[in-house]
Design a binder for these strands. Structure first.
Lengths: 190, 190, 190, 190
DNA sequence: TATGAATGAGTATTCATTCAT
DNA sequence: GATGAATGAATACTCATTCAT
């Protein structure tokens, strides 16, 4: 009967948090975030019970955004390499298109304020990618290692690739291709 | 700010900073650092004019420490692969042995408080490694990319490797080897 | 502020206020009171125009409750001492039975938020007691003092007595008797 | 070697706390207290680690002040009644002379923020008074009750007396005498 | 030079009250 | 009338930096 909580406001706060935290890091004042979101300082706390809660929700929101993009238009029936290229391309494109989110995700991951449940929940969307990677490595020297090691290798190489693509947009395509081939060689060669 | 009297105190402050920042991040209070270093709050500021200055000096000190280790006993005349393995091994060993410094280095790199001059200066020690990497890639598909891309690939793969070695010490050796072969395949295969 | 629809809700809010303020003092949040009363935050303000108003009404409600109990079954024709014992007994029994209300009454009295009209209005119910006390003191050394001094003496001794009865329930009866005799001696002896 | 902590400042803060809390209660802002004390907001926290600590120290300081006054010029060799009158007189005089401290003491006692150690420590100074009271009651009907009950009776009667003395200064002497005789009758008569 | 007290701007969170639904 | 989201002033406490000793 009362004014309902607004999904728009929640989103606005999360979006503002990305913006402000990209500039200031995890120490970005909640007041600044609220202001940029166009709500009162106190309103932020009706949507997120504390700053930590905001940070955890932000982590999940970015992960969800990323996951959604990566698995959209996923070519389930294509060859392993094609599917891997697809995933790689999506990841890299998302990173290039969302530098702020990427920066904030890195800050959040380092900050120690994202709790285990959030981390676990955030990883679920990427389970499909793990399966894919396992297939890719059937003949590689990495085949005996835990698949999350290979997942981490992919992520980290993609991150480096995105860094260079962003810094030198003119050569973005070359970096994207080179990054993937480095990754593919890394995990498939014996 | 006159020349500080005691090199010992300067080192103690840097060492304390590593300790405290590994736990608290870049927001670690200077007072806490000073206390752990066994000096007064104010004394810290006779050795470092501001917290930013302390952070930059800390960045340089860790880089220097790392560089020193990496190039010690460098086998200048060995084959490219041997030399690369040497560098890789040293890097990884340093990371496993210095988790706090590694964590702080990561925080510092993300923090936006390390200025360009410091970054440039910190990279100098690694110029030799770049040269090495360029030789390694002579026949690879990466040969046309800037050598610092390949440097970044090495660093990032080594970091992931160290993460897993630290988390699963029993399998440390396997990860170290697998990490290197992933790296070597990544940069040498066509 | 229109006439509130439900007397039940008003009572529920006052009862909840007693509960919450006994724990938290006068700084108990209106939101918490409303929640315990089973109404919405805003609803509280349709029954009480402000927190101060709530506090004043609460003061009056507790005073009224106390007065009602004290004068029920009042033995109008008995001897002065018997009547005094009756009043004392009722007061003390009420106090032991209503620790929360007693605590809140004490907080309210100290708080400076109960205004003069409320205080005056709250005292009216006790006028009969004053008359009684005046009779009791006919021969005492206190006979020339304002009767409200003697009333205050009674109240304060009863409060101390209740404190001890509550703290040591096993000896409650002894304290009740000893308290009354201290009071009776205090006001009747020359 | 650094600027020493100043006992004057500590006292100024406590004095300011008395002043401000007498007006506002325990919710008096630390900022207001600091300002009145003539120090910066942060300075208050170098003397008292938290507001709770300040409140506890304030409680102890007032208790100590009161105890000092009550036992000064104590006539150890006089009759029990004379000594009791002395203590009563001192207590009442202190109360009349220190209305703010008295009010704050009452607020503090109710507030739930004074911890047990403080309460215990604050009571020590009054042990001598308890001994005195025990002697006074040798023949009274209260003789079998714990001496702290009688102590509480004295305190509470003195408080009421002070209230009336303060409210009607013209009759202060009469109230003081009447209060004492009420007290004396209360505890000595059989 | 070393010390740590002094400073005051900055920060997360609470809460009485208003008002859109 | 009832609801609870929205508001923003208020508050305890922290911290980099300065400066008296």
């Amino acid at each position: 009967m009362a004014r309902p909580r607004s999904e728009d406001k929640r989103s606005a706060i999360l979006a503002a948090a990305v913006q402000v935290m990209a500039e200031q890091g995890e120490s970005a004042p909640t007041a600044k975030i609220a202001k940029l979101a166009g709500v009162a300082e106190g309103t932020l706390f009706t949507y997120f019970s504390s700053k930590d809660e905001l940070l955890n929700q932000l982590y999940l929101a970015i992960k969800a955004d990323m996951g959604e993009v990566m698995l959209s238009t996923y070519p389930k029936k294509a060859s392993v390499r094609t599917r891997a290229e697809h995933v790689w391309g999506k990841y890299v494109a998302w990173g290039v298109a969302n530098p702020h989110k990427r920066k904030v995700m890195a800050q959040l991951t380092m900050s120690g304020r994202v709790n285990e449940p959030s981390k676990a929940s955030g990883s679920k969307a990427f389970a499909d990618v793990q399966v894919l990677l396992n297939e890719s490595m059937a003949n590689s020297s990495l085949r005996e290692l835990p698949s999350n090691f290979v997942g981490a290798v992919m992520t980290t190489l993609a991150e480096v690739t995105i860094d260079f693509m962003t810094r030198e947009p003119a050569d973005a395509e070359r970096y994207a291709a080179a990054g993937f081939s480095a990754f593919w060689n890394a995990i498939t060669k014996d």
